[in-house]
Design a protein around this nucleic acid. Structure first.
Lengths: 180, 180
DNA sequence: CGACATTGTTGACCTCGACAACAAACCGCG
DNA sequence: CGCGGTTTGTTGTCGAGGTCAACAATGTCG
């Protein structure tokens, strides 16, 4: 088993005591050679992956989410947060368990997501009068406003997918997936 | 901001110094009432999520991966590992960078994945004679055997998707995604 | 040769899914 | 009423993965 060659013994502990993430050092934009011979040396064979739905679904999902995240980066709303806000907005008063179940998210995870949204002042958890265990979820005024913005950006994102996937394919895939 | 009600002050540090995960305490199987009124109190509204491709793609992806993982749990091969083995098997001698690029995985991540596959004796990294920086990736004999098994199981997994998604939808979606 | 790019590598951080263990509240039944 | 069982919200902990920064060794090209 080679592969134990390079790499310095201890790797000079990156001395980075402070300083924000710097957000994209603009590694692109200026390039002597526009990636010359790196076009595609041999064209790599995907093998049996070509017959696996999961592979393509995965790639598409990553692709779509990246675009979504980029477009909503202004208001700092992740796909998961967006889905949570949408469901709460469309179903006032439901419980965390119900919300988690419909979105396929663990209850434990949902607790922490809602905790964050609470702190940001977007959602509220009112103790249910009927059932002392439940918290009835609601959007705050700020939450509704934020959701409205998010929906607008999300709609933009969505319509941007159309040309890139081909309008016919887009509609086909969406309808097919919706039925599942 | 309520929600600061339940939960004990310090949460009795779970005293679990040892003992394996116990794998499914069989919480199901025996049930007095088969989830009686919990069928679906109101049927929750998905709101605008119904118009978002990303939502359905995400759900499908999770769904498919779970089945894949379950079926390959015997031989302990994740979807990512499977894709790595397949690509290496179909393209002997390619570099880690090329592999990472074609699969959309970070170089740094790929290093650790390959390190693990190496330790399991499935892959090898031979120093390239032409380029001292590169490692030419190959499957070991054991790796080929393992991949063969994995492919068989993966094929099973794949064909199990057909009836569940509907054969027509399956083919349609697969072809559509492949073109993207 | 010297500036620059590429490849493999490590370290650190963060998100997310999965479990386990609880406390509080609810439910049904003897 | 009280007791076992269940549900809801909660915290802690792991582990898989993605992301970013920094680096050593190597290759490339003017």
């Amino acid at each position: 088993m080679p592969a134990v060659k390079r790499a310095p013994k201890k790797a000079k502990v990156t001395g980075k005591p402070a300083g924000k993430p710097v957000k994209r050092p603009a590694t692109f934009a200026l390039r002597k050679r526009p990636l010359p011979t790196r076009i595609s040396p041999v064209a790599i064979d995907l093998g049996v992956l070509n017959d696996h739905l999961g592979y393509f679904v995965r790639r598409l999902q990553v692709w779509v989410f990246q675009d979504f995240i980029r477009r909503l980066s202004h208001i700092d709303i992740s796909p998961a947060q967006f889905s949570v806000l949408v469901i709460i907005g469309a179903n006032e008063g439901l419980s965390q368990s119900e919300l988690a179940a419909t979105l396929g998210i663990e209850r434990a995870r949902m607790v922490r997501m809602l905790h964050l949204l609470d702190r940001r002042g977007l959602t509220e958890r009112l103790p249910s009068s009927a059932d002392g265990r439940r918290h009835e979820l609601r959007l705050t005024r700020a939450g509704e406003a934020q959701l409205k913005q998010a929906k607008a950006l999300a709609a933009q994102h969505e319509s941007s997918l159309l040309p890139k996937l081909g309008p016919d394919r887009y509609r086909m895939v969406l309808e097919a997936l919706r039925e599942i």
